[in-house]
Structure formats: C-alpha cells, structure tokens
C-alpha cells in the first residue's frame, strides 16, 4: 500500500469538496430530500403491502362437493392439490363437522336439531401461498369432477391485487423522477467543480494523466455527496419513524398497522446504496462530458 498516493488522492478529494461548500451543501440537501421522500414512500408502500397481504393471506377457497360426490373424487381433488406447488394447506370438512360448525357459528339461532337430515355437502378449505394465484387455483378446482360450488371473496382479492399493482407502478414512476432530479443536481455540482478546475484538468492531460486518474477524485466527490445526503435522510427518517409511529397507531386504531413488515437495516442499506449510486453516476457523466471535448 502506497500511503503517499492515498494521502495525495484524499487531499485532492477534500480540496474539491471544500472549495465549493455552498454548492456542495445544495447537492447534499437535494439528495437528502430525495432520499427522505424515497424512504418514506418505500416505508408506506411496505406497510400498505403488509396490510394488504395480511388480508389476502387469510383468504381461503371454499370447495363444496356435490351431494353425490364419491370418496374417490374427493381423494382425487385432495391429491391434485397436494401436488400443486401453489397450494399451502388443504383442510377437509366432512358434512357432519360442517353442521357442528354452522351450529357454533350461528350461536344456536338456526336450530339444527329440527333438521331431519344434514343438508350440507362435504367441504374443503384451501389456502394458497400467493394470494395472486387464488383465481387460477379456483378455476382448476372447478374443472374437477364431483365439485359443486367453489367460492372465495372474489372482489376483495381482485381489488387488493389491483391496488398492489397500481401502487407498485406509481412507486416506480415516483422513484424514477426523484432519482433523476437528484442526479441532475449532483451532476451540476460536479460540473461546477470541473469547470473551476478545467485549467488543472487540461494540464493533467498534457502531462499524461489518464481519464480514469482525472475522474477518480470527482467520482469520489459525487459518492461523498450521495452518501452524505442519504445519511442525513436516514437520520431524519429514523427520527420520524420513532416519533410519528406511536401517534399513527393511536390515530388509526382500526387499521392493523404492522411496522415489522419494514426491514429497517435493509431499507437503510438500500437508501445509502441508492444515494451513493446516483452520486457516482452523476459525476461520472459530468466529468466524462468535459473530458470528451
């Protein structure tokens, strides 16, 4: 390790970084705001998705056999489902149990003792891993023999799935716009430092510096801008999370909010990564544009 080289390089980066403090602060601030918005957005999206998937995960398909369904037909369905990777659990409810269940659920309002025979068919409760596959699995079951009704809360599933899709699409657009704005501002900051140092850069080139050598300090500057901005953002987000979350829970008691669906460290890592990445890309582009001419 050549410490002289490292020292020289860090000196260059520091000199660039401190030369244009006002502009540097602007770039960092923009990244911070961008990342705060991005982080808040990701957090809300994850919470909503968690909410949605909580509901979705409780959805089950109720399969009613016809009254004349044979045991063989029932077994056929059971084994088909057991081999279907989308299916999580299958619970068989014989008609007798179904009656007991009905009795329990209606709290005796329906007096089942008046029935001379059990009117309920055999039933199967099917749960799937991915709520999105509910309609397909239901359709597949309908095609089997001995099947009467196949029901699931169709509109709930469809609406929630739709909502998830819309959220995801809006999210992508919003994130793209944020990143673009932050990238443009960092790139302008770097362009100013490049401009301030254009004489130095041309002299570097005349004595034989490679593009990479000239680029490195600027890339580092962009990286620092990006990381500093996203660190500030992470601090702000963490503060907001701990101050606002309890209030949110109180304000929306009927919503089963679940903060644990957001993986804190992973989110922080992602935000830092995104911040550093736009810094590097933006400075790479603006130095490259200068070197080409």
């Amino acid at each position: 390790m050549d410490w002289g080289k490292v020292k020289f390089f860090l000196g260059e980066v520091l000199r660039n970084f401190t030369r244009n403090a006002g502009m540097q602060a602007t770039a960092i601030g923009t990244v911070a705001i961008t990342i705060i918005l991005l982080g808040a957005f990701l957090f809300v999206r994850a919470t909503l998705a968690g909410l949605g998937s909580d509901i979705l995960n409780q959805i089950e398909i109720s399969v009613y056999f016809t009254n004349d369904a044979t045991t063989a037909q029932e077994d056929a369905l059971r084994s088909t489902l057991a081999h279907d990777p989308r299916v999580a659990t299958v619970q068989f409810v014989p008609r007798k149990e179904g009656l007991a269940e009905l009795r329990a659920r209606t709290n005796g309002v329906i007096d089942t003792s008046l029935l001379t025979e059990n009117p309920l068919p055999d039933k199967m409760r099917v749960r799937v891993h991915d709520p999105a596959s509910v309609p397909n699995v239901a359709a597949k079951i309908r095609k089997m023999k001995g099947i009467g009704n196949v029901v699931y809360p169709q509109t709930v599933v469809e609406r929630l799935l739709q909502l998830g899709g819309v959220l995801r699409r809006i999210g992508l657009v919003v994130i793209a716009v944020f990143l673009l704005v932050a990238g443009i501002i960092i790139s302008n900051t770097i362009r100013l430092t490049v401009f301030a140092r254009r004489r130095e850069i041309s002299i570097m080139q005349l004595v034989g510096a490679t593009h990479m050598y000239i680029r490195a300090p600027f890339i580092c500057e962009g990286l620092l801008d990006g990381l500093a901005g996203s660190l500030i953002a992470v601090a702000v987000l963490a503060g907001a999370r701990y101050m606002l979350w309890p209030k949110l829970l109180l304000a929306l008691p009927w919503v089963q909010l679940n903060a644990s669906v957001v993986n804190g460290p992973v989110l922080v890592g992602q935000l830092l990564l995104v911040g550093g990445f736009i810094g590097v890309i933006a400075s790479w582009i603006s130095v490259g544009r200068h070197l080409r001419t």
Binding site: D2, W3, G4, K5, F8, M204, V207, G208, A209, T210, Y213
Partner: peptide, 15 residues
C-alpha cells in the same frame, strides 16, 4: 511531483 503522480509512480520514487 504532479507529473509523476499522474503516471502512477510510487511515492517513494517521487520523494
């Protein structure tokens, strides 16, 4: 020193 640094010379050599 700068003219040597851009060539990637070792700092011992530069000194």
């Amino acid at each position: 020193a700068f003219a040597m640094q851009v060539t990637g010379a070792h700092s011992k050599e530069i000194m």
